[in-house]
């Protein structure tokens, strides 16, 4: 049954169907904390994806060697190793970015998305599938962080990725770049996506009912004819 899920599906599910932020509500701490601007969001998401992909690969490769009792500890050691790599590389190559993300890069270690994917997926699947799944989740995370970061940057300081998009007479909403703005924006975004899926569910149900009604009359028609 597992093989029926195509590789492509494995990738796309992370983007929408089980988007880590919008659908599973995982990895909230970095999501809320770093999305003051779009560029921070992108950097955070890329760092997380890097860690996620490589730890998924390593863990799914050695999944049969790890005893179940100590699996969480083993996962965390693998994840922490890759986080250290990311942190050192960022400090050397992008000191500015590393400074603005502050302690949130090391905190990728305890990001529930990464540990959750190891526990739910990599520990049961082949390395190829795990890497594809990790890339999908990473992309979903990137989309979520970019959206949240863009909205907050646009309303809070008139810009997206440093380009001014709103005219000068627009007074920036300071609250958007403060902690409260993060909670409010994400809450409204989640409600918006919930609303979308509720509508989709409703229209799906309506279609099903319409179809059912049609077949019922058809069945009745057939029965009447038989009489």
């Amino acid at each position: 049954m597992k093989n029926k899920v195509t590789i492509i599906k494995e990738y796309t599910k992370g983007i929408w169907q089980s988007n880590p932020v919008f659908k599973q509500i995982l990895g909230m701490c970095p999501t809320l904390a770093v999305t003051v601007s779009a560029i921070n969001g992108i950097a955070m998401a890329l760092a997380t994806t890097f860690v996620l992909v490589f730890s998924s690969f390593i863990i799914s490769s050695v999944r049969k060697l790890i005893p179940t009792q100590v699996r969480i500890a083993s996962y965390i050691v693998v994840i922490a190793t890759f986080v250290t790599i990311v942190d050192l590389v960022m400090k050397a190559q992008f000191p500015e970015l590393s400074k603005s993300l502050g302690p949130y890069i090391p905190l990728i270690v305890v990001n529930c998305i990464i540990l959750g994917r190891q526990e739910a997926f990599s520990s049961k699947n082949t390395p190829l599938r795990s890497v594809v799944d990790a890339l999908g989740m990473g992309s979903g995370f990137l989309i979520a962080l970019f959206m949240l970061g863009s909205i907050r940057e646009l309303l809070g300081s008139r810009t997206i990725l440093g380009f001014q998009l709103l005219p000068d007479f627009y007074e920036p909403w300071l609250v958007m770049i403060l902690p409260a703005g993060a909670f409010l924006t994400l809450g409204l975004m989640l409600a918006f996506f919930n609303n979308l899926s509720l509508h989709k569910k409703k229209s799906d149900n309506d279609k099903l009912i319409a179809k059912y009604l049609k077949t019922k009359t058809a069945a009745d028609f057939v029965i009447e004819e038989n009489k």
């Binding site: 403060l178 993060a182 909670f183 409010l184 809450g187 989640l190 409600a191 919930n194 509720l198």
Partner: peptide
């Protein structure tokens, strides 16, 4: 609470208001 806001969204919005208060 409106249906779309139930669960996580309303919790986040409440947290936002709480953060405003703590400011």
């Amino acid at each position: 609470v409106p249906k779309a806001f139930q669960g996580a969204p309303i919790t986040l919005i409440v947290a936002g208001i709480l953060a405003l208060a703590f400011m």
